[in-house]
Computed example of a mutant assay.
Amino acid sequence: MMRSLVFLGAAFALSGAFAQMTPVGLWRSIDDKTGEAKAEIRIVDNGGVLTGRIEKSLKKDGKPTCEECRDERKGQAINGLEIIRGAKKAEGQDAWENGKILDPENGKEYTLRMAPVEGGQKLQVRGYIGPFFRTQTWVRVQ
């Protein structure tokens, strides 16, 4: 009986670890240049397609709206702004790609690749324009 309980406990612990190997959840974005927290972003799964919105801006000097945006998001409030669109799971990998990510500070949209690392506690977020890319590591908010 005790052995069964230990096995069940281990199975639940492992299932929790595997469940975390996804970008879905709440993340704190960390600026790759300054190391400061910029925002909390909630990523959700809509039928296999991931989207993400800024839940809360953490920048003290940040603008309240996206004035640099070039599409329908121009002038929208930063809090609630959709910055991730269309990311799908890469076949055979723990990565989501081919979506877009918006940098509301400059209004540019980048091709996106996201991959959970460190047991799903961090998220490697990479934005591409052609051969050039920028990578940030976001931290899961518990």
Rank of each mutant, 00 (worst) to 15 (best):
L5F: 12
L5Q: 13
V6H: 10
V6Y: 11
F7D: 07
A11K: 06
A11E: 06
F12M: 15
F12D: 03
A13C: 12
A13Y: 09
L14Q: 11
S15E: 10
G16N: 12
G16I: 00
G16A: 13
A17Q: 12
A17T: 07
F18W: 14
A19T: 05
A19I: 01
T22Q: 08
P23R: 10
R28F: 00
R28Y: 01
S29K: 09
S29T: 15
D31S: 10
D31C: 07
D31T: 12
D32F: 02
D32N: 15
D32I: 02
K33V: 14
K33C: 00
G35S: 08
E36F: 00
A37R: 02
R42Q: 14
R42T: 04
I43K: 11
V44Y: 03
D45F: 06
G47E: 11
G48V: 06
T51G: 15
T51Y: 13
R53N: 14
R53I: 11
E55R: 01
K56M: 02
S57A: 09
K60D: 13
D61T: 14
D61E: 15
G62C: 02
G62H: 02
P64G: 12
T65S: 08
C66G: 08
E67R: 06
E67H: 03
E67F: 00
C69K: 04
R70Y: 04
E72H: 10
R73W: 12
K74Q: 15
K74V: 08
G75F: 01
Q76D: 03
I78G: 01
I78A: 01
N79A: 09
G80T: 03
L81S: 13
L81V: 08
I83K: 02
I84C: 03
A87P: 01
K89A: 11
E91K: 14
A95Q: 11
W96H: 08
N98H: 10
G99V: 04
L102M: 12
L102C: 08
L102I: 04
D103K: 09
E105Q: 13
N106P: 04
K108E: 14
K108A: 11
E109K: 08
E109A: 06
E109G: 03
E109H: 03
Y110W: 11
T111F: 01
L112Q: 05
L112N: 05
P116K: 12
P116D: 04
V117R: 15
V117M: 09
V117W: 01
E118G: 01
G120W: 05
G120N: 06
G120E: 03
Q121M: 09
L123V: 07
V125A: 07
R126S: 13
R126T: 15
G127F: 07
G127A: 05
I129T: 11
I129S: 09
P131D: 08
F132K: 10
R134M: 04
R134A: 09
R134G: 13
Q136R: 12
Q136V: 02
